[in-house]
Write a protein that binds this DNA or RNA. Structure first.
Length: 727
DNA sequence: TTCTTACCTCTTTTT
DNA sequence: GAGGTAAGAA
């Protein structure tokens, strides 16, 4: 058979990996060495040359983005859909497994997935239920504790308290939370993994079946696996141990989430006769960029050691800019991007990376002012918005009324007279009888234990949910959502809010209906799943990764973490400041700086041609002023690779900075004919800059920051603004 | 009971 | 700076 389409584009080491005999294989692949390529070509090789059925292949990664890309590349290579192949994230595949085997996993068929916010609320309720002081036992901490234990594979009964009262209390909270989850049929992210591991481990028949089925397991970003994920792989691999693991210890950046780099070391031990292949040739970056990355990562003591090389040539030096403040930093970046665009480059070739999401604001403001389209990855996602979660909670409650998380969310949203007092009564009954809140309501009503007004309100609420259930039966998903937001009063509730925020919420709800017109595919091996279940699970697991306007040529903004696995011709690493990157916390805790350095390594190696590093000597973050010195990572890059640019001395800006502009504004229809950042002239107020706009047609208004009289809202129809052209 | 306001804390990174 | 909470007013 002709295998040239699989092998031709590969170098010797890559080819060795792709064509290796079955058995455990560990690929130590440096950044840009063709990791994903090796992985996808291996799948094609197994399928087309070794004749392994797609049914027998499981490939797993960490992020939805990476999984999506892997799927697309495999389909392209095979020239057909992946069909029954299991390709996805650890969480996604675990979820799939649990949906198929909910009975064995002791879950209700319609179990729901909790996102971090849901989880926090439920933990909080557990803490309150135990009559503990929330200030002394912050839900966030307890949640962190629980997730950590779950990542270690530990249930409350497995944890030794060592007579430590804090530990004992935490265990109690964990236990109470777990009871609440089980009762509500709720599963958090860590639970997905742990539960599927336990289910597999405790059911011989199931285990046998899957061990037989999956002849080959492939893992990407192996350095980021945590204990359960590793155990899960080991269990599935069984005796034959056909695990193809690709990883790079220098890119391990999820230690804070329980990822164990040691898994790379353990691998050779746990899977005897492991073949190790190293990929050190980099196809992505110029020599200077690579040398900087190599020199930096040398400062880490804890590493397996490898050195990337390339024959692309040295390329440009790395530019380092020390700005006065974050605005100056942003303007420097934007000027570079504009130059790039003038020379015919695409905006999408530029990526602006930062350590924490909070840093994006300053950059976004300047981008808006300059009228440059951009796209932010991460941050607040569609399905995490309040109004969307409200709507989904109604849907969940309709499909499973024992869902306490959803119950609490919407029982008084919109307000219907069921306040704290009534609710706490319901909660008490529920806890005492160990039943769901919904169930407790029914009991209280039959026992006539509520006062007149509260009783009517609760009855009305229950009636509403049951009625919605009946009315939406047989409806398509989008009809159903449309019906529910309308008749639950949710839409009317948000419509009452005439502010921009309220309008945005109404729009989001309408967008939700739109999203439901094109629901996710139902995998064939989950016959029990309804379209609604699939939609809801997808909402929690993917939270709306894709934002609109993907076709538009946008500058890319994201955290360093979410940049892993991606590459861009032009990369800006911002906030290279001691205390921000490396973060203050990591400096204080010993041993944490190495992970920060790896993160820096990841950032540097994203760049193909041009890398800019920048910092702000003065930065306002979280409402505080910081005066910074350069990140120690800057000094760890050899000076001969750096070209330092001094800021120009003009700093006085013509006017005060305009107020922050909401992100939702950017893509809104603009019927003013003006853009944010545009200079305009008014006959009376003089010159100013447009900082915001709202409304349609004759109601269209613009917000202008005038040099002399400050900011004013003006109605376009009367203002008679003259557009100024910047000389 | 609901709405409004003042105050408080917590700020890394993601499924 | 934001989000959440607690306290006070309608």
């Amino acid at each position: 058979m002709d295998v040239s389409h699989i092998l031709d584009s590969l170098n010797t080491e890559q080819r060795e990996a792709v064509t290796a005999e079955p058995g455990p294989l560990l690929i130590q692949a440096g950044a840009g060495s063709g990791k994903t390529r090796v992985l996808t070509h291996r799948i094609a090789w197994l399928n087309q040359v070794e004749n392994v059925s797609p049914f027998g292949i499981l490939a797993v990664t960490f992020t939805n983005k990476a999984a999506g890309e892997m799927r697309a590349r495999v389909e392209e290579l095979l020239g057909s859909p992946i069909g029954p192949m299991w390709v996805g994230t650890f969480h996604g595949l675990s979820h799939r497994f649990l949906r198929m085997h909910w009975k064995e996993a002791k879950l209700p068929q319609t179990f729901q997935i909790l996102d971090s916010e849901d989880q926090r609320r439920l933990v909080q309720r557990a803490i309150r239920g135990l009559a503990l002081d929330e200030t002394q036992w912050p839900p966030r901490n307890a949640m962190w504790y629980i997730n950590n234990k779950k990542d270690e594979g530990l249930r409350p009964q497995h944890i030794r308290d060592d007579d430590d009262p804090t530990e004992q209390q935490m265990i109690r909270i964990y236990q109470a939370y777990e009871n609440a989850c089980q009762l509500a049929g709720a599963v958090d992210f860590a639970e997905l993994l742990l539960r599927s591991l336990e289910t597999l481990r405790d059911n011989d028949e199931l285990l046998q079946h899957y061990q037989n089925r999956f002849q080959h397991l492939l893992v990407d970003e192996f350095q980021d696996t945590n204990s359960i994920q590793y155990a899960w792989l080991q269990l599935l691999a069984g005796e034959k141990g056909n695990v193809f693991a690709v990883g790079d210890d220098d890119q391990s950046i999820y230690g804070w989430r329980g990822a164990k780099v040691e898994n790379i070391l353990n691998f050779e031990h746990d899977f005897p006769a492991t073949k190790v292949i190293r990929l050190e040739r980099n196809y992505r970056s110029t020599g200077n960029i690579l040398n900087a990355a190599n020199a930096l990562i040398e400062y880490n003591e804890d590493r397996l050691g490898k050195n990337l090389w390339t024959d692309i040539g040295d390329g440009d030096l790395i530019t380092f800019y020390s700005a006065h403040n974050e605005g100056d930093e942003a303007r420097f970046i934007i000027e570079r991007i504009m130059e790039h665009v003038h020379l015919g480059g695409a905006r999408a070739e530029a990526a602006i990376l930062y350590r924490s999401n909070a840093q994006s604001r300053a950059i976004e403001e300047e981008l808006i002012r300059s009228g440059i389209p951009y796209r932010v990855y991460g941050g607040l996602r569609f399905f995490e918005r309040m109004e969307i979660k409200d709507a989904l909670a109604y849907l969940r409650l309709i499909s499973l009324s024992d869902d306490d998380v959803s119950f609490e969310r919407v029982v008084n949203q919109p307000p219907r007279g069921i306040g704290d007092k009534t609710l706490s009564q319901i909660r008490t009954v529920a806890t005492d009888a160990n039943v769901s809140l919904w169930h407790a309501c029914a009991e209280i009503l039959t026992a006539n234990a509520l006062k007149g007004r509260a009783s009517t309100a609760v009855t009305a609420f229950m009636k509403l949910i049951m009625q919605l259930r009946k009315e939406t039966e047989g409806m398509s998903l989008d009809q159903m959502i449309s019906h529910v937001i309308e008749h639950s009063g949710l839409l009317a509730h948000y419509k009452k809010d005439r502010t921009e925020k309220g309008e945005a919420r109404v729009e989001n709800l309408q967008e939700l209906v739109g999203a439901a017109m094109d629901p996710p595919d139902l995998p064939e091996d989950m016959p029990d799943m309804t379209v609604l279940d699939a939609f809801l699970s997808n909402a929690a697991l993917e939270a709306g990764e894709r934002q609109g306007d993907e076709w538009e040529d946008c500058v890319q903004l994201m955290t360093l973490h979410s940049a892993k696995g991606l590459e861009f011709p032009m990369v800006f690493m911002t906030g290279m400041e001691q205390g921000l990157f490396p973060s203050k916390r990591s400096i204080e805790e010993s041993g944490k700086v190495e992970e920060e350095r790896r993160l820096c390594y990841v950032g540097i190696t994203r760049a193909e041609k041009k890398l800019y590093l920048s910092m702000a000597e003065h930065r306002r973050l979280y409402g505080r002023d910081h005066f910074n010195t350069a990140s120690k990572f800057i000094s760890e890059i050899p000076a001969e690779l750096l070209q330092e640019i001094r800021p120009r001395m003009h700093v006085t800006r013509p006017m005060a900075a305009p107020p922050a502009i909401k992100r939702s504004k950017i893509r809104e229809d603009n019927s003013t004919g003006l853009t944010v950042g545009q200079r305009v002239k008014h006959s009376k107020f003089g010159e100013g800059v447009v900082t915001d706009y709202e409304g349609q047609g004759s109601h269209a208004r613009v917000y202008v920051n005038f040099e002399e009289v400050g900011s004013k809202w003006l109605v376009m129809a009367y203002a008679n603004l003259e557009v100024m052209h910047i000389a």
